[in-house]
Design a protein around this nucleic acid. Structure first.
Lengths: 231, 231
DNA sequence: CAGATTTTTGACCAGTTGGAAAAAACGTTA
DNA sequence: TAACGTTTTTTCCAACTGGTCAAAAATCTG
């Protein structure tokens, strides 16, 4: 008998939940498949970041992606797989700025550029920030272990770096964990609470310049605080 | 004919959307009605703050409130009315600390106590904070006008107070709006991202003491910033 | 072009959702 | 206890939900 031609499998399998084959499956076989999946993920980011997992519907995502629901399900057989792909794929890039916080660099420059990069991410990828925030608000049901392992390990490591700088008198002695939280909070605020920021700043100051203003202010805040006359 | 006895109306009407009677209707007629409504609102806060408006279901709320769905609908005929009641009722108390920021007080003490009170609210009313955050993430579809009018007005007013203090050299000259955003962001972070905070701090430091630590850190941050050697 | 494969579509389904209607149960008070 | 208003439950419904399936359409390959 002739050799059986093994053609492509159902693309739906590739994002498999782990029960349909060995590990390490390629993310997408053909260019077309990869493109369609990207379109779907892009549309899903839009919807999920607004509505959260439960609030988002496959129909919404399909419409935003310009395809029919069954067609979308051909590429991602479960709603949850789209969501998980977005979450995990995002967390990595999201934490990149923190990873780059460099032990050997100048503390002042390092922290300033960390704040700046985080703020830029809020400006350039607000939906990713909101997706993440949404997951947090729900108690991180699909991410908790990642937070407790990977994220905690990374923050522990960087907290040590900060502590080293404190020991060396390069930065003020304070709680490194809460310092990191403060940087996260102040920068991500401009993505997650963007509506509020714009509503409060109004027509004039709520325009594109608001990120510059925020950057200036945050630098000021983290450098000197807001009260003069050091104690 | 005998005088018609006008007894209580359908309690559902009291939260009316405005189309069933004159303005200024009493919020609840009897003690029982008020209690039931409170139970419902309490349960709804739980569910809405986790799942957002779309993600929450009446069934979930009804179960959390210990009653049947139709029974719940007897008190609040629409899902949206529960949500709106929570939102508007909350915003008021939520902004109370800012309202109390006093022109005539000592700037340092005023701002410190504002930060402390906001942090206490995150500790004591995290669900309210998350409900609000959820609405923001969705683009504040049911709150935008409130933000643009009431909230903006309040912040404008308090920004002027801060500017006055800056003119007087009481606090460092910086952007008052972004200062307020920074206080909001850093304090509410401990409610909205509570899971993350606890996951990162781990068993040891993620316990009840974390709010004390946060308070100490934030005071430090806003007072001095994190870099020594003032420029 | 023919055959095989991949992609898309339309019809469909069971479970859930917000909500309506009506009847039953309960509480007051004359 | 009867009458009346209030509260609760039962039953029901149409629209929406995530997802299936087979067939049709489009694409690729030789």
């Amino acid at each position: 008998m002739p050799p059986i031609k093994v053609k492509m499998l159902d693309p739906a399998q590739q994002a498999g939940t782990g029960q349909s084959g060995p590990e390490g499956r390629a993310p997408a076989r053909t260019r077309i498949q990869r493109e369609k999946q990207d379109v779907i993920l892009e549309a899903a980011l839009d919807v999920f970041s607004r509505e959260g997992f439960r609030g988002a519907t496959i129909d919404q995502i399909a419409e935003a992606a310009g395809m029919s629901k069954p067609n979308l399900l051909y590429y991602f057989p479960r709603k949850e797989e789209i969501y998980n792909r977005l979450l995990t794929g995002m967390l990595d890039t999201w934490l990149q700025p923190l990873r780059e916080l460099d032990d050997v660099g100048d503390p002042v420059a390092e922290i300033r550029s960390y704040i700046r990069r985080k703020l830029e991410m809020s400006r350039d990828f607000p939906r990713q920030s909101r997706l993440f925030a949404n997951e947090m608000l729900q108690g991180a049901p699909r991410m908790l272990d990642l937070l407790e392992t990977d994220l905690k390990a990374l923050v522990d490591e960087k907290a040590k770096v900060l502590e080293g700088w404190m020991e060396a008198g390069k930065i003020r002695r304070t709680d490194p964990y809460h310092l990191i939280f403060a940087i996260w909070a102040t920068t991500q605020h401009y993505a997650d609470f963007d509506v509020q920021v714009r509503a409060v700043l109004g027509q004039g100051r709520g325009g594109e310049g608001r990120f510059e203003d925020a950057a200036r202010f945050l630098e000021h805040l983290f450098m000197h605080g807001i009260f003069p006359h050091e104690g």
